[in-house]
Amino acid sequence: MNLKILTIINNDYESFDHSSLEVFSFLDQLSNNSDVTILAFGGPKEIISRLPGNNIFYNDLKNNEHNYNDIAETINLFIREENPDFLLFQKDDYGNFIAPMLAFRNKFPYIPDVKKVVSQTNDEIKLIRPIHGESAEAVYNIHKKSTIVIKIRKNSFEEIDLKREIRSINNISLSKSNKTNYNIVETNKMTPEGLQLGDADIVVSGGRGMGSKENFDKITNLAGLFNGAVGASKAAVESGWIPPGNLVGLTGKSISPQLYLTFGISGASQHLAGCLNSQNIISVNTDESAPIFKYAKFGVIADCNDFLEELIEELKKIK
């Protein structure tokens, strides 16, 4: 099917979020013969110029602090010019704001968090997305009467490899939106503690069952022994035991490590939404009926603090 696709790749100035490469695997599911225009904001030029696509347009976002409304306005001009069949976004701060805004501005159908294409004809497309905190799924049937705006779910598609050759890209300037009445005064980034969640093969998470900040520090200790990252449930973050950047779940990070080890996390659907793509889940909880055990490969029924201490001791012996 020959489709016209406008793909939006957003990154902060200079950094590149590799999960944006998942968009291109999704694109392959849509069509193997499409006319793809990439509109990239931020990210190193060297990487952007190795993305697959027929045309690449780029703004380096060097002039921080940029307003998301200006980026939306810039994309909108491309939509009018190109009239694409699909407008694709990844799930991040930019996509969460710009994708629905542009869909409603143009009265286009908008489907966020898409995890699969079921089928497609010339007239309609069927897509799957999780609902109710990922405890259920829905099949959406969208008529192809206009551009369809899609935001893809993280960790649902493979990251493609960047092309070897560097291609020429077209620099563009940002349009100025007149639909805003606010300015960014400052941006404060707090780097999450320890190894970054998205980069780790092993993630060790703690929840309400840890009971205190002092106990939670043992999670950090164990994660260090595994060379892994520290995660947390909403309860642990709200208790102030660990910064919000370490939150795993629907309103935090979505992760897919080789091993996800949880202590004192019952498995509310909001948390499961961020960790069910893990290859192996191993959970420790006192309550045999905790929902997380429905998804775990191995479980330990134990007091999580006591078990954690024993595990740290035993791990030290074999390391």
């Binding site: 159908p109 049937n141 191995f298 479980g299 134990a302 078990f307």
Partner: peptide, 28 residues
């Protein structure tokens, strides 16, 4: 503008194995 065709609970055929042991040390 958008139509849901069906809603379902994804199948979950996961079979958990619980780690045995006399005490927490043995389980670890």
């Amino acid at each position: 503008q958008i139509e849901i065709e069906k809603i379902y609970f994804p199948e979950n055929d996961n079979q958990i194995k619980f780690i045995s042991g006399e005490n927490n040390k043995e389980k670890a």
